[in-house]
Amino acid sequence: MSHTIPYDAVVIGVSAGGLAALNRVLPALVQPHFIPVLVVQHLSPESESYLPVHLDLRCTLHVKEAEDKEPLETGTVYLAPPNYHLMVEMDRALALSTEARVNYSRPSIDVLFETAAEVFCHKLVGVILTGANADGAKGLARIKAFGGLTVVQAPETALADAMPRAAMEAVAVDHVLPLEEIGPFLNALMCDTR
């Protein structure tokens, strides 16, 4: 008997304290054919792109930097490159842009979440992790408005709690989870049958 995964993609937004958080969440994703995972981590514009390489070594899923016009594949985590917005196009390919900063950030979590919400509608999971600003709150609200699933890291477990709190103020979040439960929770979604 085959089952269908109720979601097509996961988007994750993370800022201050992000490396430690991603190191916890991403290696925990082990289901084969995990749906595409798109990540915006705030980084300084000059930072070298060592993050994807570092995470790729630690993860079962393939982790890489997102490229413009790249089609989405299962089993892959795409990280926004420093200094570029990451977006999802109507044909579900990735797109990069250098348009102005949003919430003082490029890449901006809101930009990824808003564009992904329009493309994936209710088949999207949005996750906000640790961070010291409010980027992502509007985007998460957008995901919710389209019927997607919203998840926020429990602020007590976040290195910086402003971002999770801002998200929880903006949306009636579906799940507030401690950091270590987020990976297993996402894994379990992959076996859900509805």
Binding site: M87, M90, A95, E99, V111, E118, V119
Partner: peptide, 9 residues
């Protein structure tokens, strides 16, 4: 032009 980008602008 890239549709998502154009729409945002």
């Amino acid at each position: 032009y890239a549709a998502t980008h154009t729409k945002r602008r």
